[in-house]
Write a protein that binds this DNA or RNA. Structure first.
Lengths: 200, 200
DNA sequence: ATTAATAGCATACGCTCGTTCGCTTATGAT
DNA sequence: ATCATAAGCGAACGAGCGTATGCTATTAAT
């Protein structure tokens, strides 16, 4: 009954499944992740893959949560060490742009991808996506509010509007990269974000 | 051999299938449109549904082209009657916002939806989506260029940047409506678009 | 050494998918 | 009236889907 020092074998296996699922979902969508192909890729049986989760919906939820953690690691964690306010907003934007052009998610922004996929399908997955999306908007708006209070953003600025616009720009960058293959998407995104933040 | 005055029976049937497919794809995605469910919905056999197209990929292409036509009808056609330049850009943005909050596509922006779904899957559908996306960016950039020449936008404005930002805002509005259910998404989008166009 | 729990495999289930094939109507021209 | 073409149905196919059921190793505790 004592807590383990190392993770159990099952936990390690589960983690490997989730990681493969994130990779697959990033490329082709969360619904296109099938248990059979995951099993083939991991050299396991279908029962062994779905076992730790029970149902595919649970696997999808675990996959999304893992992806949300990776986004947080890439974008929020580095920025959280910067002083709150405009500086942190700058750090968030820069980390965001690097994240979108990086290889954490080979198929592009996980949240945008899954949001488009599930926004018309009620269920626990959709709810999870919506919650993360709202949370992230609030995080940005909070920093914008601090920036306003510190006099780094115009007094009449609406924090939620800043969050909305930065989020929209990130979606635009993602589509420019993933669909149209534009090399200068990151530069365009940076310019747009800096304008929203009243920089230069 | 003489051309018909009225459409053939097959053409009428085909149009009905495509319309049902657009509706379904808007809600759940282009890949989630299945021949069996279309048949059930239209009270036809599966063979009758797929017959006019041959393969599902052809049906997907026809579905996307139909949706592109609806977008054009909603957004471009009304604006095309306005004088080129900034006024037309305003008209496009307003029609765009109405389109996004309207019921042409019950599941939201068709292009955003299918772009996210197919940007990682090479093929003719992806190419068609990419082409339309690039074309629309060019249409906006062209109007921005006219606006600059007419002195209605700052001389150092980059037309492609204007197109990028307006498109990004539209994506943001769509996600705010479809995923987060925000009632004021249209207002936020309008404010952001007007700022990009340098209006009040 | 024996036992109990864990981890994962092999198999099979009912279902839906896209596609194919032959047949039956209905239409329209001669 | 006859006949050829058009239009779509019914049935079947092989494949892949998510899930459930036993069973077999492996591990860990007694």
């Amino acid at each position: 009954m004592s807590p383990r020092v190392s993770a159990s074998a099952a936990a390690v296996t589960r983690e490997g499944i989730v990681r493969a699922s994130v990779d697959q979902a990033s490329r082709e969508g969360l619904e296109a992740v099938t248990i059979g192909r995951l099993a083939e890729r991991l050299d396991m049986s279908k029962a062994g893959v779905i076992g730790p989760f029970g149902t595919k919906e649970e696997l999808q939820l675990a996959t999304f949560q893992e992806a949300a953690g990776l986004f947080r690691r890439d974008v929020w964690d580095p920025a959280s060490e910067v002083e709150p306010g405009l500086s942190r907003l700058e750090a968030i934007c820069e980390a965001w742009l690097v994240h979108l052009s990086g290889d954490t998610f080979p198929g592009g922004c996980f949240l945008t991808q899954t949001a488009a996929e599930f926004d018309g399908r009620p269920g626990r997955v959709r709810t999870a996506i919506k919650d993360i999306s709202r949370l992230w908007e609030k995080v940005i708006a909070r920093e914008a509010k601090v920036a306003i209070e510190q006099g780094d953003l115009a007094e009449n600025t609406d924090p939620a509007q800043v969050a909305f616009e930065l989020d929209a720009i990130a979606q635009g960058v993602n589509q420019a990269i993933q669909l149209r293959g534009e090399k200068d998407a990151t530069d365009r995104g940076r310019r747009a974000m800096r304008r929203v933040l009243g920089l230069t």
